[in-house]
Every structure is written in C-alpha cells, then in structure tokens.
Design a binder for these strands. Structure first.
Lengths: 241, 241
DNA sequence: TAGTGGTCTAGACCACTAT
DNA sequence: TAGTGGTCTAGACCACTAC
C-alpha cells in the first residue's frame, strides 16, 4: 500500500480509491464489491480500516451493504418528483410516478396536544387529538415516515377505519365528508432517529427531507397537522410559486 | 449496561442516551462531554463502541470533537425560518432573522450550458452562460453553498460588478434593470461533497437542504437557474400554498 | 456449511492540547 | 508531562445468506 504522503488516513485513501473505481465503472450498478477480507489483503491492512472506508461510501449513499452477502454499488430503486399543491397527497404522488402506494400504521393513540400541535390545529390544551405514526411505501420500498395529528372531536371514532388503508384522505372524505386543503409546508433537511432508520431500512446518516404541513377543511377549519420524513435519496419535491 | 432487548446495537443505544442527555440539558451548549475513557467505564464497554456512538453524534452535527481536547456540544449559531415567495431572496431572509448577510465568490466562469441548464434557462447549447459558485454567510457563519447560472447575453460584463457584494439581485437590478421573480423551487435533502463540507465548516454527513429555483424577469424571460445547499441544522424553509 | 457483514474486545502508537 | 481524540492491529462471536 502506498497511501502517499498526504495528511489523510489510509481509510479515506481507500474510500477514495474504491469510489474512483466505481465511477470508472470497474464495478457496475448493482454489482457486488470485493469482500472486506479480500480488500484487507489488497490494501495490506485489517478489517477495521477497510470498514472505516466502506462506512464512508455507505454514508454518502454510493454503496449499500447486505448482511451475510456483501457490498453492492447502490442502484437508486426510485426517483420520484413530486409537485406539491394544496390538493396533492402522498398516494397520488406515488401513482404519478407509476408506482403502487401503500401504508402501514405503526402506532395510534388519543392524547392531549403538545404546544406545537395546539398552535397548528388551533385547539386548546384540553382538546384531545389523535396521533398516528404511519410508514409509507412506494412499490414496497419504505419511502417516508409520517407522524400526523387530527382533532379527536372532528373525527370521532377514526381508529376503527384505520385498520388498513392506502390513502388517509380517502378515509376522511368517505366517513367525515371533509375536503382537505394544504395551506402551507415547511421544508427541512434532517437525519433519522435510530427508530426511523430501522423502519425506513436506511443507514442512520441518510438525509431525510422533512415536510411539515397544515391542512384545513373549508368548513370544519384546521383538520390535520402532519410531519413526514421522506428519503432524500429517493425523491424531490417541487413547489410552484 | 441494560441496553434493553431491542434489535439495535449498544453503540446506537449509547448515542441515543447521550443525545437525550444533551437535549435535557445535562451538558449545555459548548460544554465538554465526558472523555471516551470515562464513557467506557460508565457503559461497561470499550473505546470502539463508544467511538461508534460518538461518530454518529458528530455526523448528525450534535457534537464536535477537538483533537487532544475532547467532545463538545455543538452550539447552534443560528436558527432561521425562511418563507419562500416569488420575490424573497437570500439576503432578506437573513436580515429578517436579525442577522447580517454576506457572500463570497468562490469561482466564476463563462461556459457552455449543460443540458439541465439549457432546459432551465431556455437557452441552446451554443448560448454561453455565466456560472458562479458563491458561499453565503449569516453573521459570519457559513450557511449555504450556492451555484448559479445566468445567460451571458442577458448580463454582458457581469463579472466586473461581482467583486464583492451582499445581494446578487441588487447588482442585477442596478446594472441590468431586471425584476427577478422566482417561478418554482425544488427541494431535496442531500449530503455535501467533501469540498462543500470544507467550505461550510461541517462534517461530511451533515444533511443539507438543497433548493433549486428558476427565476425569470417579466420582460427578459428566464434569467437565472440557481442551486443552493443550506445547512439543514440551521434553517427551515416554508412555502405558502 | 462456508462465507459474508455487524458488532465487540483489548490492546497499541501517534499528534495534539492544556498545564 | 498527562490526558485527549485519531488511527490502527489482531483477534473474537454472532446473524444472516447462498449453496
């Protein structure tokens, strides 16, 4: 190993080397990289150093690892573009990309609202709200982690309809006759918690695009406060101004 | 150590534990955390595991390390909220937060446009464009990395005005009498390149909020295609719909 | 069953910082 | 000089996958 006289670690030198080889096409999309053991031999070093290098490639999203199998050049399973408007919703975004949307309820509860939720929904600290945690998929790829709050008074008995579903808004329209309209969205780049990373099946350094929205019904008023974290490597969101 | 029967590693459990303690204020902003050695004792484990945990906290930007000294809780120098509209621009966003905006030109060139730039600016492959790389600051904290393209024909001689500036749009208005209007923005969560991380003074896994915008002038037509990467830990952007 | 990556142990030497 | 984080070594056991 001639890791040349610069002020970088051998691990970072190896990471750069592998990255250049991937970019030169030595390993093509979806193909397996050499095992850690063989890279140890190739670079005359040990597993720790090799793993430091591979960790970097995994973190920047160039490579993914499969336990018991190996490292693979990352193919992007999806590349979704979503134009956000007052009336678009998650399921239509997925369908527009030619994929099948689905969702899974992770948790549901009726509780008193936090200060932030009070402000967003225009409710008092004594008005109960439903809180759902929902994992959303596109063609069976976990795409977003969604936390959503709705006033309990407005949607009495909602949990009984939430057993399995594709679109939350379809349920709300059907049983409560509301017409949901998004009034604003706030964007932020964040990293997942360990819990979210597990559900989304990503490394804990994959960036997420967090979108907080407030949704109202023309008659019933503010009806939903929702916070969704989308996999940043799989989608982008456009807002027309 | 009771790292409870979940399917997460001890390192990630420790990272969460330290993170919760920081959020509870056990270690306040800028204060030194316990040394790796003392954390080894506390969690009945060894340096490797502690370092895996601390690596995560450094990567998500919660903590920074100083060689030979220790780990410190990262002070968040800023917390900016920005409402994006057709006429807001970077400098006003900063000023609204009560801070002083500034900017530094990293590079400038006149070149032929890539396919993406052609499409965004409605120019052909033979129409030259100016490309600027700009580093933007709020109160001397590097906040965003900005790449921007403008049609050379529309802004002949622009580089001579770009020696030092606060607002690009002030220059364009003053010398070219345009009225810039943003027509859309695309949001994405990304990680910085090593180069960008260096300029922004962040770890290479800090998430960035990338905002691509197309800007037009009512008379002159499409006048700017701009891609800005904002430090995700320092700001959030709201779009009214 | 053999090979893979995920996690962990128990050391080592170094460069850097504070005193 | 003593303590810190940065890097590296050389092992170990495990869960998982492919054959």
């Amino acid at each position: 190993m001639t890791s040349q006289h610069k002020n970088i670690s051998m691990a970072m030198f190896i990471a750069d080397e592998i990255q250049r080889e991937i970019e030169r096409g030595v390993y093509s999309d979806g193909k397996r990289l050499p095992s850690e053991a063989s890279m140890c031999h190739r670079f005359y070093t040990n597993r720790y150093t090799i793993r430091q290098a591979m960790d970097r490639l995994v973190n920047i999203g160039l490579v993914r690892s499969r336990k018991g199998v190996g490292y693979f050049v990352n193919e992007r399973p999806l590349d979704l573009c979503y134009t956000i408007t007052p009336f678009t919703r998650f399921s239509t975004m997925i369908e527009n990309g030619g994929l099948k949307p689905s969702a899974m309820i992770i948790s549901q509860e009726k509780r008193l609202p936090s200060e932030k939720v009070q402000e967003a929904l225009h409710v008092t600290q004594n008005d109960e709200v439903y809180r759902f945690e929902i994992l959303r998929f596109a063609d069976d790829t976990p795409l977003a982690w969604n936390e959503t709050w709705l006033p309990a008074k407005m949607f009495e008995g909602l949990p009984q309809y939430m057993t399995s579903f594709v679109s939350l808004y379809d349920i709300l329209k059907k049983h409560y006759h509301v017409r949901p309209k998004r009034i604003n969205s706030t964007f932020q780049a964040v990293v997942p918690t360990v819990n979210e990373a597990t559900y989304l099946q990503i490394s804990p350094s994959t960036p997420l695009l967090q979108i907080e929205s407030i949704v109202k019904d023309e008659i019933a008023g503010r009806m939903e406060y929702t916070k969704a974290k989308y996999r940043g490597d799989l989608c982008q969101v456009t807002s027309e101004l």
